[in-house]
């Protein structure tokens, strides 16, 4: 089924994008068609997504740009199966979201997708280290945990080291700076070795130097482990390094814009 789809999708891959040619023959990991999502606010319908079509291939870094409030976070949540679209289809690695029940979706989110939230969303009662470990604790039941504990804690430690937070391992989120929390959130997203990483403004609250560090970290992951990611950002510089950039405008995806334009959009958002 996977192969069928990959063949079928070949035509749908956009052309003319700066990086499109590079990723053309890679495996299609995420495929969304006709996504609609609206919110009801005080009796009025706010249409945030109005027919989003998107594909992400394995090993690709895709940047989504858009004005504030245009629905980037909403789109990311829908793509990451956290939220349900009103209409449309999302396939992840050949599996249709709508064919799975809540529990199966939760398991898939836990094991295959990593999420870096716009507002970090760390658990305040837990230390940085425990926050990073959380996805593994959720993955394994009490029995399996005995066997996996060693491996999981080693990985959490290595990830904290990767984001240069080993000295902060025992700190609670409120004892950490914004940038440190962001890095803990990234480490947590990577804990279960996800095939797909969703990042919502990973550098949004960081200064230039720290933002660069985070970018190096993410791009390093892509180079070394072929990590696939979708990054929502305001940061034109960050977007300019992506393999491909798309825009979310008036509830739809617009592809293939020049990076100059990217910069323009980013500046006035």
């Amino acid at each position: 089924m996977q192969d069928d789809m990959q063949d079928g999708m070949q035509d749908g891959v956009p052309e003319g994008g700066a990086a499109a040619a590079v990723v053309d023959n890679r495996k299609l990991l995420l495929h969304a068609t006709g996504l609609h999502k609206s919110y009801k606010v005080g009796g009025e319908k706010l249409e945030v997504l109005r027919g989003v079509d998107m594909q992400v291939r394995e090993g690709e870094i895709l940047a989504i740009l858009g004005k504030s409030g245009c629905g980037k976070s909403t789109l990311l949540h829908v793509l990451g199966w956290l939220d349900k679209p009103d209409q449309g289809r999302i396939m992840f690695d050949g599996v249709d979201r709508s064919t799975l029940n809540a529990q199966e979706r939760a398991r898939l989110r836990n094991q295959v997708m990593g999420f870096v939230f716009q507002f970090y969303h760390l658990l305040p009662e837990l230390t940085a280290f425990e926050n990073v470990l959380m996805p593994s604790m959720i993955q394994y039941g009490p029995m399996a945990w005995r066997q996996e504990k060693k491996h999981a804690t080693e990985r959490a430690r290595a990830l904290l080291d990767l984001v240069s937070l080993t000295p902060r391992a025992k700190h609670r989120p409120r004892q950490l700076s914004g940038g440190e929390r962001q890095r803990v959130a990234i480490a947590r997203a990577l804990q279960n070795e996800p095939r797909f990483l969703f990042c919502d403004e990973p550098t949004g609250n960081l200064d230039g130097k720290t933002a660069e560090d985070v970018r190096d970290l993410l791009w390093g992951l892509n180079e070394e482990q072929n990590q696939t990611m979708v990054i929502v950002t305001h940061d034109a510089k960050l977007a300019s390094h992506a393999h491909r950039v798309v825009h979310l405008e008036r509830g739809r995806i617009v592809e293939g814009k020049d990076l100059d334009l990217v910069e323009e959009v980013a500046l006035d958002s």
Partner: peptide, 11 residues
Amino acid sequence: DIGIVAALGAG
């Protein structure tokens, strides 16, 4: 927190 834990894959 409940939202976070749910997002991380807790059913």
